[in-house]
Design a protein around this nucleic acid. Structure first.
Lengths: 199, 199
DNA sequence: CTCCAATCTTAGAGACACTCTAAGTTTAGA
DNA sequence: TCTAAACTTAGAGTGTCTCTAAGATTGGAG
């Protein structure tokens, strides 16, 4: 059944990710070639591209799982769910899923975070994947909460939440709690950064 | 003394942008080579890279002017300016500056918009440039309004505004007013998508 | 007008990401 | 053990982008 084949593939994939991140950390992203990565993982360059469509993709290895996380939240949602609750729930699910090939305290997780912030091409890739998840999220939110918002509002809301989180977490001072910043940021986006003036 | 030299450069640059967008429209972005673009503009491929660092850059020709737009808004701001006013002013300035090599009703402007939405690599480039402008905007906003918000809040706010606008304008139904959507979206981000519950 | 110097353009060589095809190897299951 | 499918690989080729050195054009000084 779940044979030796699957296991071997899993290990090759993991080896490629580890090799890539280690080398990116040591030599920089641009300073590392796919040939070097595959050599370190003991496979041919052609094999690298069997596992990852682009050199960039190895940094976003499990990103596609975020789609499933969003789908999961809305599949479990009651039909009369409120917007605020669904938004909070989705953010929480995305944040805790942390669909990534390493545990949160793994050293390479920190390397990856550093790379995403430092290498423009990778930040762009991150933003794009974020935006695509946002598109899907907006669609689900609209379908689930039709009477409460229209399509444009749903897109604006999800775009605002993701945009705010990316920017806020980038500014996160060392030692402060990411969880707290996430919660406060979502709250501000949903309910406003400033009190509405009366009138 | 704005000599013949400057003028010639300006025309070469413009020719490259027009050639690129026309070909992208006809053959697709990936289906067009730099060799084809430069051939149509009657220069060598090497010259293309004298004007634009990457093939992608030709689509974002005047993007760097957005920085100056942001700087301009904050240079003109009174020291006691309010957050909401500065945000609105900046969005307005960015929207109307529309720092682009063609007038708004030029056919290639529409081509460019279509490309940005359709080609993932270009959407990623757009999001990155947006985010970088957002970083600068957040910094200025924080410096100008220190008592009113901290660094993380400023970043979250600008990130939210830009993220919301990108997502909302993507969903814009044909024939509806972009200006109205922009204004409504900014208002929602600043003052909240939902009314705050009492308590 | 002529020549010099700075600037701009270009050819050419080369690195690297990525694609495709065809061939070789390994594994699952009969 | 044999076969079919899945996986890996070499090799050739395309296109972006870099770098260097050489050729062309222009602005200014004599």
């Amino acid at each position: 059944m779940t044979g030796l084949r699957e296991e071997k593939k899993r290990r090759t994939r993991q080896a490629l990710i580890e090799a890539a991140l280690t080398l990116f950390d040591e030599q920089g992203y641009d300073g590392t070639t796919v040939a070097e990565i595959s050599a370190r993982a003991k496979v041919s360059p052609a094999t690298f591209f069997n596992y990852f469509a682009t050199k960039e993709d190895v940094v976003f290895a499990d990103q596609h799982l975020y789609d499933e996380v969003v789908d999961g939240v809305f599949a479990a949602a009651k039909p009369d769910a409120q917007v605020a609750e669904l938004v909070t729930r989705t953010v929480h699910a995305l944040a805790t899923a942390e669909a990534w090939s390493f545990p949160l305290d793994h050293p390479l997780t920190e390397v990856r975070t550093r790379l995403l912030a430092a290498v423009p091409a990778l930040r762009a890739g991150y933003l794009l994947r974020n935006a695509v998840v946002g598109d899907r999220w907006a669609e689900k939110l609209y379908e689930t909460c039709k009477p409460q918002l229209d399509r444009v509002e749903a897109a604006a809301l999800t775009g605002a939440v993701l945009g705010a989180l990316e920017a806020a977490l980038r500014q996160l001072p060392d030692g402060s709690s990411a969880t707290e910043v996430v919660l406060a940021t979502v709250d501000r986006v949903v309910y406003g950064f400033l009190p509405r003036k009366k009138g």
